[in-house]
């Protein structure tokens, strides 16, 4: 344990880091899922005409 100002701190163990990495991967998957979710719902709500517009 080391001191950081007045706050006592501890270093992450390799196991802690592995857990945090797995959590970050799960969060990334959720975010990708949300992007797909909003994309599909938007298509359904607005209808296929949203694809048919002049460039």
């Amino acid at each position: 344990m080391s001191e950081n100002g007045n706050r006592p701190v501890v270093a992450f163990s390799p196991e802690d880091m592995a857990r945090r990495r797995r959590r970050s991967v799960a969060l990334a998957l959720v975010l990708v899922g949300l992007v797909v979710f909003f994309f599909v719902v938007t298509l359904v709500k607005t209808g296929p005409a949203i694809m048919n517009r002049p460039l």
Binding site: M1, N4, R7, P8, V9, V10, A11, F12, D16, M17, R19, R20, R22, R23, A26, L27
Partner: peptide, 21 residues
Amino acid sequence: AAFDTIETRSEGVALTSTAEA
């Protein structure tokens, strides 16, 4: 990564957790 820090734990309650999904 070895110098990343978490707040110390007290009485078994994590102040900053390393919880999994």
